[in-house]
Write a protein that binds this DNA or RNA. Structure first.
Lengths: 239, 239
DNA sequence: CGCCCCCTTGAAGTGTGTCAAATCGGGTGG
DNA sequence: CCACCCGATTTGACACACTTCAAGGGGGCG
């Protein structure tokens, strides 16, 4: 376990710890798993669709996504995977990837340590369960985004989601957060064309909602934007 | 446990048994749970968004859905729930419904019996896990449908999905299956307007793809349709 | 220097939405 | 048995959000 391998860990741990309190044993397990860190360059497939999944992985740094491609080349990014997110955490016996997993930037991943006792009060097990529940909530939100929202609303809603998720991992500063996606990638996420994403971003810049550039997004008034796209705070478990 | 309560069970059991082999103890547990059968009329909410979830339920008969509603009245049906599907099977400690659950037709549900030993080789546990994996696969497919497909493709793809899922529960006969949704409800599922769903159905009728009416759909050439919308067979676990 | 990717902009086309109204069908009450 | 009603389906005319096609500009990197 080198220092280099550990450097990207804090944000992933921060996210898991924000989901459920982790004790020293959990943290130790995470650090131990860091010996299995793997670096994957941008645009590389982490897992192909239909491939067997050995075990859950934890994204330490960088952005990845689940993507599905139609035979004529149309692509849809089905969900974004951000630092601290789990990859391929299924419950069935011989799980198979239901979608390809793609590194959008350079990425580091490591095998997610198995929680000690599934049933008992392991913080890690609870964190994993909650992470899965949030993943599902984001999938659902993505569906209503694509099904019922305008381009402007979709884009704003996605930025709010990114801000929310990155904040949990301590990766945003105020209303500013890193956003390394190209407009082409955003288009594949939002179900739009590159051209229209570009025009939509222009519109958001012009009405003063955001500053975008240099791989960074700043939301000028998240609350107003939240109301504008009718985004209500989600909850995944009782307080 | 009256006969009446048991009547809708076979298709739900058929689906679970098709996912993983169930032994006598599993079947007995399912029959025992039938004492908790509940009948819910159409249009009634089974669970409101954000409500706590007591335990997983099993849909025995009728169609339900997970729906999200924006404040201005736009609705998106996020997933369909068919007989044999589980409702609200989360892993976290105090799960909360991430979306409202709505009965689309009259529906019967019962509490899903807990599998004996999560880890050991309970067929029921495996069936639940696979059911969840399929649910997720359908969510992902719904996302690429909404994001990247035309109205015609979306509709055809959804019909193919319905056929696939209902067949697993033994509820289709050849290429014909029950489809009790109104065009308004289809529209909310497909991210379209009622008017356009109507026109799309007309188009499908005219090119000889389907017969629709009387709460029934017949696909005239599922293989051709499958190729037309680039639907590939999904897999959720290794064979 | 030159290439490639990404971003940007314009002009024209089209798939889907909007608005409005007519028809159909099944249930209900007189 | 008819009259009525109400939701679901159907159809037409028009509007517009988003796509398509095309071209140009900018920045990093070999």
């Amino acid at each position: 376990v080198t220092n280099t391998a550990l450097r990207p860990m804090p944000s992933a741990i921060a996210r898991l710890a924000a989901l459920a309190p982790l004790d020293d044993i959990d943290i130790a397990a995470l650090h131990k798993a860091a010996s299995g860190v793997r670096r994957v360059p941008a645009r590389r497939e982490l897992i192909g669709q239909g491939q067997p999944i050995a075990g859950a992985n934890l994204l330490l740094s960088g952005w990845a996504c689940r993507v599905s491609t139609l035979s004529d080349g149309r692509r849809q990014i089905v969900s974004l995977i951000l630092p601290g997110d789990l990859i391929g955490a299924g419950r069935q016996r011989n799980p198979v990837a239901t979608s390809a997993i793609l590194a959008l930037t350079e990425v580091t991943v490591m095998p997610a340590p198995k929680p000690r006792a599934e049933q008992s009060g392991s913080g890690l097990a609870e964190a994993y369960a909650l992470s899965g529940a949030w993943d599902e909530a984001y999938l659902l939100r993505n569906i209503t985004r694509l099904g019922r929202m305008s381009a402007y609303e979709r884009t704003a809603d996605l930025f709010l989601e990114m801000h929310e998720r990155l904040s949990l991992a301590g990766l945003s500063r105020g209303n500013t957060f890193p956003m390394p996606l190209t407009q082409q990638t955003l288009a594949d996420t939002l179900g739009l064309t590159t051209v229209h994403v570009n025009r939509t971003l222009q519109a958001m810049r012009q009405d003063g909602s955001v500053t975008i550039g240099g791989g960074t997004v700043e939301l000028h008034d998240p609350e107003r934007l939240t109301r504008a796209v009718d985004r209500r705070p989600e909850r995944v478990q009782l307080p």
